[in-house]
Amino acid sequence: MEKKRTSPLAFIDRLPNPGLFRMGALITLAVVLLVVVGLVWMPYEPTAMSPDRMQGISAAHLLGTDKMGRDILSRVMYGSRVTLMVALGTMAIGAGLGVLIGAFAGFYGGVLDEIVMRVMDGLFAFPNVLLALVFVSIFGSSTTHVMWALGIAFIPSFTRVVRSEYVRIKHLDYVKNARLQGASNARVIFVHMLPNVRGVLLSNLMIGFNNAVLAEAGLSFLGIGSQPPFASLGQMISEAQEIFFTVPSAVLGPGIVIVLMVLGFSLMGEGLRPATKGLD
């Protein structure tokens, strides 16, 4: 007997706050659309200069042009792609390694746990920007290196939540039960326990993504990371500061996309969070 088919989106209605989640998802979708469209079509080459410098908004240039006459909309589309890739890459590295380390530390406990968590504390205390600077000065400035630097800086936050979840659930009966059926440690850790920490993991991913977007923007504003003429959003804002009053869209365009990215994920994260905030 088959269970009746449910829409793949039905899970949203069971979330603590489906309304917020929907709104966040819509905003995120809009940003993703901008990036996806940019992959196949942009109004102009994002690096192509033209004599039409610092133009305001017009039919030919929907967001105007910057001080080298490059089309801002095209650059925003391209920059969003860079920023999104860096944020996703950062999450992949930070969450991937963080979850792995946290799971093992929490599951095995003991000395291993102690050592790992002290290292994480050290890493956590190290400012992200400083770490990125060190990284970039050793390996050279590129988006990939920024991604790794941020990714590594993000490991401790994931390690912490995942570890504490593992410590919490490893004594629960169903985990004991899995072990008593002869499951290997790896099977217990990944098949039985990991799905049960997905809640905290998911909301942490949302927060982490935001932090990654902002950190990348901050770093490229400081000139660390992607190199001109291939700009990320943060770098566009940095370059456009001096023409803000002539062509406000040069700052507002990339600025709004950053805000939307962050807002979208924040709202989705809020939608996932049970409404227990005022209780504790």
């Binding site: 039960n177 039985h192 799905p195």
Partner: peptide, 16 residues
């Protein structure tokens, strides 16, 4: 060798 526990409410994995 198998074992069953007292608490059937918590002995099953809620997500499986």
């Amino acid at each position: 060798i198998s074992i069953i526990f007292q608490e059937p409410m918590t002995s099953l994995d809620p997500l499986q």
